[in-house]
Amino acid sequence: MASRSTSFWTFILILIVLHLALRLALGLMVVPDLIVVAALLGGRRLDGWQSALYGLVLGILADSLALVGFGATSVAFVVVCYIGSRSRNFFEGDSYLFISIYAILGAWLVEVIRYFAGGASARGVDLGYLIGAGLLNALYVAAAAVVSLIAYRAITGHR
């Protein structure tokens, strides 16, 4: 049987490939941003700087087709992954309720950092976006994080 670490990172890899396959190969915008899910869940499993580096790599991949604000997602993921890693010092929980709250806050923070770092306000995007669409996106990502974690735990039996 695969070790806990191997199965978890295989799960993260599947999330990333699934994200690219659904959004890039099939062009489905309706699919939740699984790369944010991968960043949030993976970031909590690594130590501080490794988590930040993981966020940087994922951010560059997420920004690979960004003609404006290239690097904004990298900044967001570095911050969120590092905070996610440090959060283990304060919250040990891995219940679905905790993961839901963590994913909502994390995904919303990604939206906030992307908004400001990517110059969305200069492009005419209203600040209300963060309260409306931004928060809805965060809820959608959190739901996807919980569902994918349920699937992972059901298949591997790991927590």
Binding site: G71, S74, V79
Partner: peptide
């Protein structure tokens, strides 16, 4: 180290 990686990300952005 995490700070250095954040600076790298900011350089990328700029």
């Amino acid at each position: 180290l995490a700070g250095a990686i954040l600076v790298l990300a900011l350089i990328l952005l700029g």
